[in-house]
Nucleic acid binder design. Structure first.
Lengths: 163, 163
DNA sequence: GGATTTAGTACGTGATACAAACCAAATTAG
DNA sequence: CTAATTTGGTTTGTATCACGTACTAAATCC
């Protein structure tokens, strides 16, 4: 289990915050800021996942399967893993009853992976909590700042995939 | 919950576009934006680390040691790991000649960990490249946006570590 | 000076990740 | 239509990573 990254979760205030929190914060610089932020976010994900007996990787696996039923190879590509890494990952998820393997109709080589009802429910509940926890990270932001951050993050993500 | 670090995600209330550049990017929403961004950043770090035969954890270890010479316990706390996890981590780094263990003068129980010259050089070179790669992620941003993002990230990081 | 706390290690377990070797289905060549 | 090749997955072996538990030795408390 990844008790990962930096911190335990702190209490979360409601995500209302409209008035500027004039907190002066030392600027980490763009690089350190992004790197450290990534650890914070991953830490939160790790925590939420761990609470439900999942690892970040497994959580990601389930997340991908929410609206897809890919083959092993496709799945590996989505997660950026080697195909040989998928076997065990899916094995363990299957053993826990979260995921199912079924042969693909059109191609005898392909094994399609899909969520079981239990898997669906687990990922749904976990997503709700992760959503809340991540949102809590932005508690000190104004709505406008949140919107800015959202947009900027989106640009980076988009830019990184089009390479 | 990452749908996937590299692909579209579920819709979320869009934000009022600020003075965005002409790149129209679908807003992922604050949560998915942050989550996917964290995967992108971690991916870059993992890539850079792997190129030099390191894992992200090891890179982080070396990074912490750049300006510190902590004991094992202190180190564990910095990395958010259990102290029992440190032994192996430091063992492996030591075996590679990147790190050194030395007894602390004032406390016979404490083992201080420090970088070897080789470790210093490796972390230096890796940091340079990581810096470049992370910075490259922001290639589509204006200087002003970069500054904004840097500031926002800093606020989140600060808010998450305090308490 | 003995009890307790603290720092670190040892060991066993489980998850993760990859490479290389391998099998079977599908596709391409000839 | 076979033979060769490509493609999807699994297996196996190795290394890393993280944890909990148990244990040793040095400090500290009373």
């Amino acid at each position: 289990m990844p008790k990962d990254a930096t911190q335990p979760a702190r209490p979360r205030p409601a995500a209302a915050a409209t008035t500027a929190d004039r907190t002066e914060v030392a600027d980490l610089g763009i690089v350190d800021g992004l790197v450290q932020l990534s650890f914070v976010v991953q830490g939160v994900l790790g925590q939420v996942a761990t609470e439900r007996g999942l690892s970040v990787v497994q959580l990601r696996l389930l997340g991908v399967l929410r609206d897809r039923t890919p083959g092993m190879r496709e799945l590996a590509q989505h997660l950026g893993l080697d195909k040989s890494s998928m076997t065990g990952l899916v094995d363990r998820a299957e053993r826990r009853g979260l995921v199912r393997r079924s042969p693909a109709p059109h191609d005898g080589r392909v094994i399609q992976v899909s969520l079981t009802p239990a898997g669906h429910e687990l990922v749904r509940a976990t997503a709700v909590e992760a959503d809340r926890e991540i949102l809590a990270l932005t508690a000190h932001l104004t709505d406008e700042q949140r919107a800015q951050l959202s947009q900027l993050a989106s640009v980076l993500v988009a830019g990184s995939t089009v390479l």
